[in-house]
């Protein structure tokens, strides 16, 4: 059993939790994920690692309440325990000194982006961060990301904070200004990652995206998380979750991510969440 040691409400639908999981904390690296199951009847869901504390043996997860499991997770309190919490899974981010990097986080995707921003900065990169959300209320970790960024841009769909528009607008502007961008990383909604990849493609700027498809075991056994990358079929759980953004078939990913929409609704209704 894995105890919830801390809980923070980030916005109406986004929550942060620190979970006691010493073995996972000991090995966790930026870019990896965990799989949790709340109780005996629960589903196994993957969540990207937002942070970790090796000394305290804790792993931080930040999640948006979108389905039955995340909504139920949101109702748990400090002191409650999760039945299963396994990881760290997937490959860590490829971190190195690139030079100037642009780090793009959309909505709840800002959470897994944060530890990568931190590591890249520590390695001596010039970090430009672009954080986007639907509105000001849904923005998170602004101060934390700012601490490890040389420049920070904010965008909101409704203009309640920063640039009114999309993260890709700012990225395009940076490129147009002739900034020498060596790498772009985007984590957020699939459509956002697709647009970012489209922006950088003509300039051949290395672009990494972190995918979060439907998973069951998370160890390479079931193949549920497969994505088309170039001519190959890759498993996000063991080959990913990060892939070359220019090669991912985003439309297929969006299609496969909608596989259980109806069942999810039914499940939520039944649980009254």
């Amino acid at each position: 059993m894995y105890e919830i040691l801390e809980k923070k409400i980030m916005s109406d639908t986004v929550k942060l939790m620190k979970i006691k999981a010493s073995l996972v904390a000991k090995k966790a690296k930026a870019g990896q994920f965990i799989i949790l199951r709340i109780d005996e009847k629960g589903e196994r869901i993957p969540l990207t690692i937002a942070d970790y504390d090796r000394k305290k043996g804790t792993v931080t997860i930040i999640f948006m309440e979108v389905g039955k499991t995340t909504k139920q997770l949101g109702t748990l309190k400090v002191g409650d325990k999760l039945l299963n919490f396994v990881g760290p899974l997937g490959q860590p981010s490829e971190l190195e000194k690139y030079g100037t990097v642009v780090m793009i986080g959309g909505g709840v995707g800002i959470a897994p982006l944060y530890p990568i921003v931190r590591e890249l900065k520590k390695m001596g990169n010039y970090v430009i961060s672009i954080l986007g959300a639907r509105n000001k209320k849904l923005l998170m970790l602004e101060r934390e990301v700012e601490e490890f960024s040389d420049e920070l841009f904010i965008t909101t769909d409704d203009g309640t904070k920063g640039h009114k528009g999309f993260v890709s607008d700012v990225l395009q502007k940076l490129i147009d200004e002739g900034r020498d961008i060596k790498m772009v990383m985007a984590i957020g909604p699939v459509i956002m990652m697709k647009v970012v990849a489209n922006v950088t493609r003509p300039y051949k700027i290395k672009t990494l995206v972190s995918l979060n498809p439907i998973m069951v075991d998370g160890t390479g056994m079931c193949g549920g998380c497969r994505v088309s990358v170039g001519d190959e079929t890759k498993f996000a759980c063991v080959d990913g979750p990060e892939f070359d953004g220019h090669k991912v078939d985003y439309d297929n990913l969006m299609l496969r991510n909608r596989r259980f929409c109806c069942e999810e609704e039914e499940s939520c209704k039944l649980a009254g969440v």
């Binding site: 009847k41 589903e43 196994r44 069951v216 079931c222 549920g224 069942e263 999810e264 039914e266 499940s267």
Partner: peptide, 23 residues
């Protein structure tokens, strides 16, 4: 894959959905 289908049904008990959460 057969593996995903059977894992959902057997280990996650999807045949008892929505009593169990995995569809």
């Amino acid at each position: 894959s057969a593996d995903e289908f059977l894992t959902r049904v057997n280990m996650m008990k999807a045949y008892q959905f929505p009593n169990y959460d995995t569809p």
